[in-house]
Amino acid sequence: MIDINVIQKVNPQSPEDPRKYYGTSKSSGTADIRKLANRISKETTLGTPDVMAVIEAMLQDIPEFLLEGKIVKLGDFGTFRLTVSGEGAETQEEYSTNLIRKANLHFRGGKVFQDVLASAEFRKVS
């Protein structure tokens, strides 16, 4: 169940329009790497230290693959990829990588996430 807070917001494209109320998801705490490793350990034959080692290796290897220009596909878990944002140039010849402001990390959830989100239920909270 996803808890929803209702808040009033301005339309940034029309700030003079009347404000409307929108739902925002409410977090109920965090789950850190250790909690994740403990849960995975209970669901598999691996001990918590083994799971932690795999997660740590992924945290090291995924960014390296991304910097090599790879899209990292983790099956039904999802896909990581890099994009860049910056300024444009009038012509291809005038373009320089100095116009790039930053690199962005994008994650697209795979089938497991899509299925869970498709069946999510919501509850309005105060």
Score class of each variant (00 low, 15 high):
Arg19Thr: 04
Lys20Arg: 11
Tyr21Phe: 15
Tyr21Arg: 04
Tyr22Trp: 12
Thr24Met: 04
Lys26Ser: 09
Ser27Asn: 11
Ser27Arg: 15
Ser27Asp: 12
Gly29Ile: 05
Ala31Phe: 12
Ile33Met: 14
Arg34Glu: 10
Arg34Gly: 10
Lys35Asp: 11
Lys35Ile: 00
Lys35Glu: 13
Leu36Lys: 06
Ala37Thr: 04
Arg39Asp: 14
Arg39Met: 11
Ser41Gly: 11
Thr44Val: 06
Thr45Ala: 14
Thr45Gly: 09
Thr45Lys: 08
Gly47Glu: 09
Gly47Tyr: 05
Pro49Ser: 00
Pro49Trp: 03
Val51Arg: 06
Met52Asn: 09
Ala53Glu: 01
Ile55Asn: 07
Ala57Ile: 00
Leu59Gln: 12
Leu59Ser: 10
Leu59Ala: 09
Gln60Ala: 15
Pro63Tyr: 10
Pro63Cys: 08
Pro63Gln: 07
Glu64Pro: 01
Glu64Ser: 03
Glu64Val: 13
Phe65Cys: 15
Leu66Met: 03
Leu66His: 01
Leu67Met: 10
Leu67Arg: 07
Glu68Leu: 12
Gly69Glu: 09
Ile71Gln: 14
Val72Leu: 11
Leu74Met: 09
Leu74Asp: 08
Gly75Cys: 10
Gly75Lys: 06
Asp76Trp: 05
Phe77Asp: 10
Gly78Tyr: 08
Phe80Arg: 01
Arg81Pro: 05
Leu82Cys: 01
Leu82Lys: 01
Thr83Lys: 10
Val84Arg: 02
Ser85Thr: 06
Ser85Pro: 01
Gly86Ile: 03
Glu87Asp: 14
Ala89Met: 12
Glu90Gly: 14
Glu90Ile: 10
Glu90Tyr: 03
Glu93Trp: 00
Glu93Arg: 02
Glu93Gly: 01
Thr97Asp: 02
Leu99Glu: 03
Leu99Lys: 13
Ile100His: 02
Ile100Asn: 08
Lys102His: 03
Lys102Thr: 02
Lys102Leu: 02
Ala103Tyr: 02
Asn104Glu: 04
Leu105Cys: 02
Leu105Ala: 07
Phe107Ser: 03
Phe107Leu: 12
Gly109Arg: 07
Val112Arg: 15
Phe113Trp: 11
Gln114Gly: 15
Asp115Val: 03
Asp115Trp: 02
Val116Arg: 14
Val116Phe: 03
Leu117Ile: 14
Ala120Tyr: 02
Ala120Thr: 14
Ala120Pro: 02
Phe122Pro: 06
Phe122Trp: 00
Arg123Tyr: 06
Arg123Phe: 07
Arg123Ser: 13
